[in-house]
Write a protein that binds this DNA or RNA. Structure first.
Length: 411
DNA sequence: GCGGCATGCGACACCACATCTCGGG
DNA sequence: TGCCCGAGATGTGGTGTCGCATGCC
């Protein structure tokens, strides 16, 4: 039995709307997202069958369950047999499709009740089933945002798999190995990376494209700051205090760590906090002014030189975009590929645990600071359709310059 | 090195009103 | 104890404004 619908609290929730941060039953999903043109653009996907709290990104054919990235990763990473499970990416959708349409795009789900579509104002006219989107397609494809990076990665995953729109753990591992083996800053030679089921040739140019190196936000140095100081503390990452306690530890011990030798005198937590502020800026992920506060690499020249793995993960981070792309922030976290730097002197940290810790840390940080939480969806819906003058709400009936129900704005 | 100016960016106020909360009957 | 009612508080999003930080001359 899954979670109840966040809206009616009666029906079992089936889909997850990231824009509303809500799990909804199909009926409420259609009602809520047929309210206006804006809400119709919300991208939704199936709810994870395991945690019932995150949007699912893949369908495990073997287990016949839809899984979010976290549950997928946790459920398939360890067992050799489980890792070979065939998984199919789950498309998201917008608009207010009928049950039949949903059944068409999610053919594996047999639970869609047939409902009358009459309550949808414009029905399928505005519906856009994003067949070509990967499971991490929150937002509009083609926009210059972090999700493109995710899309690239998902596309990359598909390349490793003979059947379109799906991937297996082996291919994910291949991608991971690809990230681990390729040194984008130096080597350009092709490398072979065994996937377990298929060998693929790794071209560094592809790798670089996927990584969006220039899009600086959270670099691997952050990871080193977070987890690289002394991995003897790894166990403490998994207690309730999570990464926060780790910060405390690092503040007291980081100076003596091999990995912290080049760190400026300010505390690691302080560094990260300042970076978060800079990253949360997000309005201009590519600051035109090098050396500005939004350029973390410029703030840490010593550490930049310290690590040859100063790749940017900016496109994958939640904090970089949560403010600007709230509807996709969580998805970014969940969709983050399970790679991480290896070969570093401090990389004795178990890889899987480390990835899990990173994910948990980001999730916690997101909910703590960067995700605007909509407490009352009804009020949001009301505000979405309320008319404004220069951004201010106006009385009903008064002249207005912004009609949210109209696609084109007049100023 | 210092001051003035320009620029960029974050924080915040503003607006209406449906909804929520809470105390009293 | 539970219900009802009314007053007050709350929250919602787009835009403009202000102040601070930074860079340049």
């Amino acid at each position: 039995m899954g979670a109840l619908c966040d809206f009616c609290a009666e029906q079992r929730s089936m889909v997850y709307c990231r824009s509303d941060a809500a799990s909804l039953c199909l009926s409420c999903d259609r009602n809520v997202h047929s309210a206006n043109a804006l809400s119709r653009r919300h991208s939704r996907t199936l709810l994870c069958d395991r945690c019932f709290s995150q949007p699912s990104i893949v369908r495990c054919i073997e287990e016949n369950v839809s899984l979010c990235h976290n549950c997928d990763w946790n459920g398939h990473r360890d067992s050799a047999s489980a890792s070979e499970h065939k998984r199919q990416t789950i498309n998201c959708y917008s608009g207010c499709p009928s049950a039949a349409e949903l059944s068409r795009i999610w053919s594996f789900v047999r639970e869609f009740p047939s409902e009358d579509d009459s309550n949808c104002e414009q029905g399928m006219g505005l519906m856009s089933i994003n067949e070509n989107w990967a499971s991490t397609c929150w937002g509009e494809p083609g926009s210059n945002s972090n999700q493109d990076v995710i899309m690239n990665q998902m596309d990359t995953m598909d390349k490793f798999n003979p059947w379109i729109g799906s991937y297996s753990a082996s291919s994910a591992n291949a991608l991971q190995n690809r990230a681990q083996q390729a040194d984008p800053m130096q080597s350009t030679a092709p490398k072979l990376c065994g996937s377990g089921t298929k060998e693929v040739e790794i071209r560094k140019s592809d790798f670089n494209e996927d990584f969006q190196v220039d899009d600086v936000d959270l670099t691997l140095e952050d990871y080193e700051e977070l987890f690289g100081g002394s991995h003897n503390y790894s166990g403490q990452l998994f207690d309730d205090a999570g990464i926060d306690s780790f910060f405390d530890l690092k503040e007291t011990s980081g100076a003596n760590s091999n990995c912290q030798g080049d760190i400026p005198e300010e505390s690691s937590a302080g560094c990260i906090k300042s970076r978060q502020q800079a990253c949360s800026n997000g309005a201009d992920p590519l600051p035109s002014n090098p050396g500005s506060k939004a350029d973390p690499s410029a703030s840490f020249p010593a550490r930049q030189a310290h690590s040859s793995l100063s790749l940017s993960f900016s496109g994958l981070t939640g904090e970089s975009s949560a403010g600007d792309y709230p509807e996709m922030s969580s998805m970014l976290l969940m969709g983050e590929p399970p790679w991480y730097p290896t070969g570093h002197e401090c990389s004795s940290f178990p890889a899987a645990n480390r990835d899990s810790a990173v994910m948990r840390y980001k999730e916690k940080k997101k909910t703590r600071k960067f995700d605007k939480k909509i407490r009352y969806a009804s009020r949001k819906a009301r505000a979405d359709v309320r008319r404004r003058v220069k951004g201010r709400f106006v009385k009903a009936g008064e002249a207005y310059d912004y009609d949210p129900l109209c696609q084109t704005r007049s100023y």
